[in-house]
């Protein structure tokens, strides 16, 4: 009895064509509804996302390329700036050198000039001094002569006198 009830012909012997038609019909309807209500919109979104991802990837690749270009550019600029800076330093050094030389030269000339003028002055002072001595010696001689003439003295006295005066002159100096 149990076996019988679960056998293939459980549907009381009648051919259930209605089930078949109903199954087909319902499944077709379900297919249609699922396609309209769920599959369509979902596929739309999935496609949209796919496109979005693709475009994002493209964008990323593009910006990466751009970044590389920028980097190269920046590197080039940096290199240029560095060499320029080097040049500037070089120039400054050169200028400083030139200036240094000029300054030392000017200082040298100045000192030379000062030395020259100092020498000149010394010479002048010497001349002055010699002239003054000469004058004094002359006047002294005249004085000695007049003293000698004033007193007719003996040669001893004369000598004594001369010595005295010379002494005097030596002291007077």
């Amino acid at each position: 009895m149990l076996i019988n009830s679960y056998a293939l012909g459980a549907s009381a012997g009648a051919f259930n064509g209605g089930d078949i038609i109903f199954t087909i019909f319902t499944f077709a309807l379900l297919l249609l509804l699922v396609k309209k209500l769920a599959w369509g919109p979902l596929m739309g979104v999935m496609k949209q996302r796919e496109e979005y991802v693709a475009s994002e990837i493209e964008e990323a690749e593009k910006s990466r390329k751009e970044a590389i270009t920028y980097l190269d550019e920046q590197r080039e600029l940096l290199k240029e700036a560095r060499s320029e800076a080097q040049l500037l330093i070089e120039n400054a050094k050169k200028q400083a050198d030139v200036q240094r030389q000029e300054i030392t030269k000017v200082a040298h000339e100045e000192s030379e000039r000062m030395k020259e003028s100092a020498k000149l002055e010394i010479e002048q002072q010497k001349e002055h001094a010699v002239a003054a001595i000469r004058e004094q010696v002359a006047s002294l001689s005249v004085l000695i002569a007049s003293k000698v003439i004033e007193k007719e003295l003996s040669s001893e006295d004369q000598e004594k006198l001369i010595n005295e005066y010379i002494q005097e002159a030596g002291e007077g100096r």
Binding site: L2, S5, A10, S11, A12, A14, N16, G18, D19, I21
Partner: peptide, 25 residues
């Protein structure tokens, strides 16, 4: 345990109503 199917004839076709119900569900 001898379960039968709820058969129903409509326009010359036999419908197993339990199938109809369950497919719909």
């Amino acid at each position: 345990m001898n379960h039968e199917a709820p058969m129903y004839e409509f326009m010359g076709l036999w419908f197993n109503l339990s199938n109809v119900l369950m497919i719909t569900v």
